[in-house]
Write a protein that binds this DNA or RNA. Structure first.
Length: 493
RNA sequence: GCCGGUAUCGUCUAGGGGUCAGGACACGUGGUUCUCAGCCACGGGACCGGGGUUCGAAUCCCCGUACCGGUACCA
């Protein structure tokens, strides 16, 4: 089996296209086949090498490596020319000198008359000598395919079944533009045939091109591949997913802190089901189970909530070192990491990122969850209504005062046990327990009413306070200092 | 307009001539934990509409409706 993904480099990799790439990849991987990457850059106006580069990076980030390519259509111009010459020589194609203005007027007239706008065929039967004369005069000409008349063009689609189009609806279409660049339908067929692609899996938006392509396969004497057209991905309002809906490109989801394996897993779930009751599955398992005939025919709505849920799974599955590495750029953007951390910095990050990650959806949420470590501000804490509510509870201030006395006398709370022991002593001294004990401790030490478990958060604070100056992280104020600052702020208030 | 396509909970789906129409996300309630997340239990929620075929239709057929794609010298 030989499959391909053939994006045009006109922007970022859209998640809909990423899903198409994934389906192809799964097919190849699941069958021991070959996954070919081809860049369809025949539209010289819109194609950019920056886009191409971005698409390659996105595919690599997703883990969708290719076996052959990337091939660029812009580098295969003579191949298309040669194939077009064959069709020209056989009379299956012809030169057309119609101007764009002419064609546009005809199209509009047809539309107004309620007819299908298709090429009129004006240049279809120009005499040999006229063609030669006009060409030698340098008159711009395209090469058009002479669509055989009559009947239907049918093909078997692996996801849609039998599909057929009346041939009469297909006008003679352009193969080669005046500048020698091939048009889409022509380049695709030539490439897919020459690259010996066996299954063409692509978006549904290409389905009505398929009859044209089938005709071309016939005319060129190539055997058509199997086709499969997968439905598009929509936004929550059932319109095609666009910028309006927020993130649409792989790069944007990466920037929001989704893990590649989560995006891949989620994308596979739109329009396909792995069967069984398990849907969070590694890509290799998806490849084992994936079958084109199980792909649904209807369009699917992209649901970021579910993506987030899948992402949580994969964040839990990721080991601490990897998670720390992944989260570091996000922490750096918030000033929590100030330069490349040293070994102590990384060790610390592994600890705290692990603590933060089991209650957030995405990497981008981690800094907020760790803010209490790097920017303790007692005054800000007191202005928080939730913190106020905690302090207004019976005995809350006594707990804070007791905690301050306890910490003044004890070592740093660098372990869960040390923290528990300290909390126990405050408990005995104040007679407060559970919520009445831990809530005031939390607000005093973290400055926030919520956050990671105190068993983890408190040692993280004091461990952070011991970090050497060269760790690469923003400084962390220790517990003892915090509770003093908190008390002072309380006095002032 | 014309040509194609699609239709099961809000969303992704399983199933498919006789089922209590199953699961997941989301949502609601209760429990658990210092908070959030999580976890546990419980709960609400769907076969687009109308005809036909049939003993029986959500499932097959037709019509309609809605939505999507195409209708290029864009892919």
């Amino acid at each position: 089996m030989r499959v391909r993904f053939a994006p045009s480099p006109t922007g970022h990799l859209h998640v809909g296209n990423a899903r198409t790439a994934l389906f192809n990849w799964l097919l190849a991987r699941g069958s021991g086949g070959t996954f070919i990457l081809r860049i369809e850059d025949t539209d010289r106006e819109r194609s950019t090498s920056a886009s191409e580069q971005a698409i390659l990076e996105d595919l690599e980030w997703l883990g969708l490596g290719w076996d052959e390519g990337p091939f660029r259509q812009s580098e295969r111009l003579d191949i298309y020319r040669a194939q077009a010459d064959r069709l020209l020589a056989e009379g299956r194609a012809y030169y057309c000198f119609c101007t764009e203005a002419q064609l546009k007027a005809e199209r509009e007239a047809a539309l107004a008359a309620g007819e299908a706008p298709k090429y009129s065929g004006r240049c279809r039967d120009l005499s040999r000598s006229e063609v030669a004369a006009r060409r030698s005069r340098g008159e711009p000409a395209v090469v058009r395919f002479r669509v055989p008349e009559g009947g239907d063009v049918a093909f078997l689609d692996k996801v849609r079944g039998e599909v057929s189009f009346p041939r009469a609806a297909i006008g003679d279409f352009v193969l080669l533009r005046p500048d020698g660049n091939p048009a889409y339908n022509f380049a695709v067929v030539v490439d897919d045939a020459l690259m010996r692609v066996t299954q063409v899996v692509r978006g549904e938006d290409h389905i009505s091109n398929t009859p044209r392509q089938v005709l071309l396969y016939e005319a060129l004497g190539f055997r058509p591949p199997e086709f499969a057209h997968v439905a598009l991905v929509l936004g929550p309002d059932h319109t095609p997913l666009s910028k309006r809906h927020g993130a649409t490109s792989v790069a944007e989801f990466r920037a929001r802190g989704y893990l590649p394996e989560a995006l891949v897993n989620y994308l596979a779930l739109i329009g396909w089901s792995p069967g069984g009751d398990q849907e969070v599955l590694p890509i290799e398992e998806l490849a084992r189970r994936f079958r084109l005939e199980d792909v649904g025919r209807s369009a699917g709505v992209f649901d970021e909530e579910k993506l987030a849920w899948v992402n949580r799974h994969y964040m839990r599955l990721a080991g601490a070192p990897r998670l720390a590495k992944l989260a570091a750029p996000f922490l750096r953007a918030e000033g929590m990491v100030v330069r490349e951390p040293d070994a102590s910095g990384w060790a610390y990050l592994e600890k705290v990122v692990g603590m933060a990650s089991d209650s957030v959806d995405r990497l981008a949420d981690i800094p907020r969850r760790l803010r209490f470590l790097f920017s303790y501000d007692a005054a800000r804490a007191l202005s928080d209504p939730e913190v106020q509510a905690v302090l207004n509870e019976d005995g809350a201030r006594e707990v804070v005062a007791g905690l301050a006395r306890e910490l003044a006398a004890s070592e740093r709370l660098t372990s869960r046990e040390a923290f528990r022991a300290a909390a126990d002593r405050v408990k005995r001294e104040t007679g407060r327990k559970a919520k009445a004990l831990f809530h005031p401790i939390r607000v005093a030490l973290t400055g926030e009413a919520g956050g990671p478990e105190l068993d983890h958060a408190v040692p993280a604070i004091d461990l952070g306070a011991q970090l050497p100056a060269g760790s690469g992280l923003s400084p962390v104020v220790g517990c003892r200092e915090r509770v003093q600052l908190f008390l002072e702020a309380l006095d002032r208030a």
